[in-house]
């Protein structure tokens, strides 16, 4: 049978079948790529369009940041603590490198939540001052984000423009010269680092502020940071099905080739033993 498969006719057909397999395999990979892209887009749209929920439903203090919290729109109540106030360097806003203004909120759960209140082009900007932090109870709305990955921190540190505004700042933390006494400047937003400055309990992850309700009159804070687009992974099952189908068809082409080789071999054998071809020997 194997010898039969090596006949030029069958080899030529095998070459054709393999070419079909390569083409179908490629189509399958393409559909899998489409599935990934669509899945990511769907997941992003779902997260962004999912209704705003109270923060305690998606994120608890002193616990890992769940994937489902990434990009979730949440509302939280608490009080700002103007003494727990940091600036984070190397943050782009509309292509301009500047600083994030981050203030701790004592949530109703009694833990510190880092809130990105906005962006300033320079640490000396008035809006970066802790004086602009509302003092009474506040109700905040925003988008949850996980802590910066270490890679993000080093990428931010590589951004030389980030150092322009802060001559005094060196490695991970320093004091931004003009932003009031004791304002820390960080290169990354990370609960492991913030807990040393602010104390526990603290949330892993942070809130990018989109709206704020405070009592009394408050001087305008920094310009809000646009909620970042999240990159959750997901698959569009329909395109996964197409991908699988392309591959199954490719496999089927191979199976069909083999069956035809086998049938041909059987027929040759039957023709050899003239007259005894009960099954399939009618050629």
């Amino acid at each position: 049978m194997l010898r039969n498969a090596l006949r030029p006719r069958w080899l030529a057909l095998l070459a054709l079948v393999l070419a079909v397999c390569v083409a179908f395999g490629w189509m399958g990979s393409w559909q899998l790529g489409v599935a990934r892209d669509k899945g990511t887009e769907q997941a992003r749209r779902e997260v962004v369009s999912s209704p705003r929920v109270p923060m305690e439903q998606v994120l608890q203090p002193q616990q890992g940041f769940p994937l489902t919290a990434d990009g979730r729109r949440v509302a939280v109540r608490g009080r700002y603590d103007a003494r727990r106030h940091v600036l984070v360097s190397g943050r782009l806003q509309h292509g301009v490198s500047g600083w994030w203004v981050v203030t701790a909120v004592r949530t109703s759960a009694g833990a510190w939540l880092p809130v990105v209140r906005g962006w300033v082009p320079s640490p000396d900007a008035a809006a970066a001052s802790p004086d602009r932090v509302p003092s009474g109870p506040v109700r905040l709305e925003g988008v949850l984000q996980p802590d910066d990955a270490p890679a993000d921190a080093s990428a931010a540190a590589d951004d030389s423009a980030a150092d322009d505004g802060a001559p005094a700042d060196d490695a991970a933390s320093g004091t931004a010269s003009g932003a009031g006494t004791g304002t820390r400047a960080l290169r990354a937003l990370d609960a492991a680092e913030l807990v040393n400055l602010w104390g526990a309990p603290i949330y892993n992850g942070f809130l990018v502020l989109t709206a704020e309700q405070a009592t009394g009159s408050v001087a305008p804070g920094p310009e809000h940071v646009p909620p970042p687009t999240v990159q959750p992974t997901g698959l569009a099952w329909r395109n996964v099905a197409y991908a699988v189908q392309w591959w199954v068809f490719a496999g089927f082409a191979l199976v069909l080739w083999w069956k035809m080789v086998r049938q041909d071999a059987r027929e040759r054998q039957a023709a050899g033993q003239a007259g005894f071809g009960e099954d399939g020997g009618t050629a």
Binding site: R238, A241, Y242
Partner: peptide
Amino acid sequence: AWWSPIHGVLYL
């Protein structure tokens, strides 16, 4: 749209 992958299986 749910029909297309099912039709793919039927065609197979």
